[in-house]
Design a protein around this nucleic acid. Structure first.
Length: 263
DNA sequence: ATGACTCATCGCATGAGA
């Protein structure tokens, strides 16, 4: 028998690493994920709290940006070995939205897909162009003979089952047919949508906006996703959303979302 | 149809988020 280990991989849009550091640290301590993909750091590289994360037992790589965007990868007890920062296909794209590394034997892409609102318009065009670049890059990863995961805030509501009220979001970039079509094309490459695989028909959300007590009332969206290539999907054991984090005071509007896999 | 919240920024409002 080959040696096997159980790994917990998580994605968490923190909506400002500065405003969320204490919550991030307490979540890490309670849940002890092995690999964490973070989005929306909203901080310059020099403001990333590497020392505090190191004290908490996590090595990190990050790609910051002033005010907006920003992504990072954390490894429990290890520093991720970076393989890429930025999606290929557009050298003029200066937004910090993708970082990739080997962590605990898994190739992990951490992504923050553009929101795309308002649509139609240039921001929606940028979203779709970014998605096509992601599709191309994902196509080069899915068939590797190694475990690969794409983790992040995809800003796509895959189906009407992934939103509390499809009608309320009808004009939003997250739910447009064009966005969903590229999502489906990603899955057709062979990726497994881990949360949907585990929850099947059960309702599960990862984001609840700050308005009208949507978190408390569980009126949310499923937009944070974990895509597993066939090698990794073969070891999928469990998946979940740490909604308790979203219900805390001063929470991000997203909750940490995770899978447990045997590799 | 709008705005409700929240974060970051040389802020006393604005842009962006989703």
């Amino acid at each position: 028998m080959p040696r096997r280990k159980l790994l917990k991989l998580a994605t968490f849009n923190v909506n400002g690493i500065g405003a969320r550091l204490s919550q991030l640290l307490s979540w890490l301590e309670v849940e002890q994920p092995d690999v964490v993909a973070l989005q929306e750091l909203k901080a310059l590289d020099q403001a990333f709290p590497a020392a505090q994360l190191e004290d908490a037992g996590y090595g990190a790589i990050w790609h910051g940006q002033r005010s907006w965007n920003g992504v990072a990868l954390l490894g429990r007890g290890v520093t991720p070995v970076e393989s890429r920062r930025g999606l290929p296909g557009d050298h003029s794209d200066a937004q910090s939205r993708y970082i990739e590394a080997a962590v605990h034997g898994v190739i992990v892409g951490c992504l923050y897909l553009p929101n795309g609102n308002p649509q139609p318009g240039p921001k929606f065009d940028y979203k779709l162009a970014w998605m096509r670049r992601l599709q191309r890059h994902a196509g080069s990863l899915v068939g590797l003979p190694a475990p690969v995961a794409l983790l992040g805030d995809f800003n796509v509501i895959p189906t009407d089952a992934d939103v509390y009220d499809p009608g309320a979001w009808r004009k939003d970039a997250l739910i447009q047919p064009e966005s969903r079509q590229v999502w489906r094309q990603l899955l057709q490459q062979g990726w497994t949508d881990a949360l949907r695989e585990v929850f099947e028909d059960e309702q599960v959300y990862t984001f609840w906006d700050y308005f009208r007590q949507h978190a408390e009332r569980d009126r949310g969206l499923r937009i944070d996703h974990l895509l597993l290539n066939p090698v990794l999907a073969a070891g999928l054991q469990e998946a979940g959303v740490d909604r308790w984090v979203r219900l805390q005071e001063k929470a991000s509007d997203h909750a940490p979302t995770w899978v447990r896999v045997r590799i």
